[in-house]
Amino acid sequence: MLMVILAGFLIGALGGAAALVLSEGTPGKTVTTTGKALVGGPFTLIGEGGRTVTDGDFRGRHMLVFFGFTHCPDICPAELQVMAASLGELGDKAKDVVPIFITLDPERDTPEVVANYVKNFGPEFVGLTGSPEAIAEAAKAYRVAYSKFTPEGAGKTSNYSIDHTALVYLMGPDGEFITHIPYGTQAAKMADTLRRYL
């Protein structure tokens, strides 16, 4: 939950800074900015059946990417349900979007575990895992912060949890970042966002 709050503050701060920059200058003049968001990038991970999956496998379709872990008690399943519902609202256009879940817990989330987990949200979902190094690299590319901790009274060290950024990333058919969708966004609003870019 802490990561969700921190992500909200970060997004707000970036938006405020952008607004400040755009509001300065000559009154009555329109300011145009250009640039590329440094979010997303190449990844090489492991999918169902142990096959290697790269970001390039999804070229030509939009990617809807969420990072989490299968032992997550609330945020992850709730967000994946919203993703599934938003795709359901798109009708035929949903075929142009591939929903991708990338685990932040490769220690417990094997390819089989992740594949079985994402099937709960729909057959179109792709679940990915990999080595800790590959997961860390993908998370860094998407600016996802995460940390492992053991709750008080959890007992065994295998009962750990993971704090993580809870954003959904919409990537274009070329693999480039389009926008992010904050945690807590309703399915109808997420579907509206997707329609805008499809």
Rank of each mutant, 00 (worst) to 15 (best):
Q186S: 13
L38G: 13
K156A: 14
L6Y: 03
S158I: 06
A84V: 01
G15S: 07
D96P: 00
T193L: 04
G47P: 11
L194N: 00
G122P: 07
H62A: 10
T34K: 13
G41S: 12
Y142I: 10
A18Y: 07
R61C: 00
Y160H: 05
P182G: 07
R196Y: 06
F69E: 01
P77N: 14
E107M: 09
E48C: 03
S147M: 02
V65T: 00
Y169W: 06
P42V: 12
L170R: 10
V31S: 11
G130S: 01
R196F: 03
I5W: 07
A78M: 12
P77D: 15
G91S: 03
R108M: 08
P182E: 14
F149Y: 15
E176Y: 00
A78T: 15
G127I: 09
Y160R: 00
Q81A: 11
T26D: 13
E89P: 02
V114S: 09
R61Y: 04
G56D: 13
G122A: 09
K29D: 07
V98Q: 14
E24A: 15
A19E: 13
S147R: 07
K140R: 12
M190T: 14
N159V: 06
F125A: 11
G172N: 09
Y142T: 15
Y142Q: 11
H71A: 04
A166V: 04
K156Y: 01
A94E: 02
T110H: 00
G25C: 08
M171D: 12
E107P: 08
K140V: 06
I75S: 05
A145D: 07
F66R: 05
P77K: 00
T44Y: 05
R108G: 13
H180Q: 13
I5Q: 15
V114I: 11
T129D: 10
S86T: 02
R59A: 14
L38V: 12
I178G: 12
L14T: 01
T185A: 09
T70K: 01
T185V: 14
T26Y: 07
V4R: 14
L22H: 04
M63W: 06
G127C: 14
S161C: 04
L20A: 15
V114D: 04
F67W: 06
R61L: 10
L128H: 13
V118Y: 02
H62F: 15
V65Q: 06
G25H: 05
L194Q: 05
V98M: 09
G56F: 03
D74N: 08
G50R: 08
G155E: 05
V65L: 09
P132I: 06
D105T: 00
E124V: 10
P123R: 15
G15N: 12
R143E: 13
A17D: 11
G47D: 11
T34W: 07
N116M: 03
L22A: 12
V4I: 13
E79T: 03
D92S: 15
D174Y: 00
T179D: 14
A138G: 15
T30H: 08
S131R: 11
M171Q: 11
T110F: 01
D163G: 00
A85S: 09
G16W: 13
A78V: 12
